[in-house]
């Protein structure tokens, strides 16, 4: 069993509290992504799980064993670093076999395990090379290979794709996910990229300022965000937030424009949230002044103005509006989110 339980884990550097007693329960074999903006504490939490940072308060339990006071080497975890952290003076094979050699595993067994990992990651031709002789993607694979050969209870990934170009990132994303499906090892993955989080995770933990904002499956977070932060962070482009007030006919923006509202109309709603992809072109819709049109081929992104407020729309259709012209859009009422003045979602 390699369940990971984080119970009220806190981290403090002198007077600065960077992690404020967070709790997460990660099931055996689950792929959990810690996501949030820079400085939210996600990497610190990962490093606390790894044993690279001391735990100021709370407990971390890996496989039924509290690991607070254990050295990293005794936690039975493997970690892939953002910088890959490959040993420059060792070959690929020696990098991958280093941990096993420290454990005094017989040389034949090390060779077999390294070869098996190399086959999984298509590294067999590169085993005699040094890290400096590899491309970014190959280095990334070696870093994963080094983790795999140890067959640990938990894999930890600290923004492993952030040094790769966009195309390679998409490819490696799929490879990591495929690897997880094959090995079914509990995985904790840190990223600031919500697309990575959405596409890879069984469960996402959204963090901000050292606290957890929401934990849920990718679609739970997308469909039912708890607050404006999660609603804005998950989804690309971000959700539109339109300020206004709820009155008897519906939601009225600060500019006095009436927006179509779901049947339930909570009086406390002060922000109307709708995702760009949930706005559709409609002849009887609300008028939107086009500011910028961004055709991507598969879709058209329109940056526009609703009164004085900026609005982003994503249409599957190809449209040919000019900057300054007016298009009419209608929100999908099933996908409208209302928030109170504290930013909390109203259900």
């Amino acid at each position: 069993m390699s369940r990971v339980q984080i119970r009220q884990a806190g981290k403090r550097y002198a007077a600065v509290e960077v992690l404020k007693g967070v709790s997460v329960d990660i099931e055996d074999g689950q792929f959990v992504v810690l996501v949030g903006p820079s400085g939210c504490g996600k990497s610190t939490l990962l490093r606390m799980i790894a044993g690279l940072e001391e735990i100021s308060s709370g407990e971390i339990d890996i496989g039924g064993r509290v690991v607070n006071d254990l050295q990293p080497k005794d936690r039975d975890i493997a970690m892939v670093f953002q910088s890959y952290a490959l040993y420059p003076h060792k070959t690929v094979a020696d990098n991958m076999g280093f941990a096993l050699r420290l454990k005094r595993v017989p040389e034949a067994e090390i060779k077999a395990k390294v070869m098996r990992a190399a086959e999984i990651l298509s590294l067999t031709n590169l085993l005699d090379r040094y890290p400096r002789q590899l491309s970014g993607g190959q280095r990334q694979r070696v870093a994963m290979g080094r983790a795999i050969v140890r067959d640990p209870q938990v894999f930890l990934f600290d923004e492993p794709l952030s040094n790769l170009d966009a195309k390679l990132r998409v490819q490696m994303r799929a490879e990591i996910k495929e690897l997880h499906q094959r090995l079914k090892t509990t995985t904790i993955y840190v990223t600031h990229d919500q697309v990575e989080a959405m596409t890879m995770a069984d469960k996402i933990v959204v963090m901000r300022d050292g606290s957890i904002e929401q934990i849920g499956t990718p679609l739970e977070l997308y469909d039912r965000p708890k607050n404006m932060f999660v609603a804005g962070f998950i989804g690309s482009p971000s959700m539109n937030f339109i300020k206004g007030t709820m009155s008897s006919p519906g939601f009225t923006t600060e500019d006095g424009i009436a927006l179509p509202t779901p049947a339930e109309r909570p009086a406390s709603a002060t922000v109307y949230g709708v995702r760009p992809e949930h706005l559709r072109l409609a002849d009887d819709g609300i008028p939107l002044e086009v500011v910028v049109l961004e055709p991507t081929g598969s879709e058209t992104i329109v940056l526009g103005k609703l009164g004085k407020q900026n609005i982003t729309c994503v249409f599957r259709e190809r449209i040919s509006a000019q900057a300054g012209s007016i298009i009419r859009v209608r929100p999908d009422l099933q996908a409208v989110h209302l928030f109170d003045q504290n930013g909390a979602a109203i259900r």
């Binding site: 790894a50 990293p72 080497k73 493997a78 970690m79 953002q82 952290a85 280093f98 454990k103 080094r146």
Partner: peptide, 12 residues
């Protein structure tokens, strides 16, 4: 990072 990776790999 290199030393941290080695610590996870089994070094003090």
């Amino acid at each position: 990072d290199l030393e941290e990776a080695a610590m996870i790999d089994g070094c003090s």
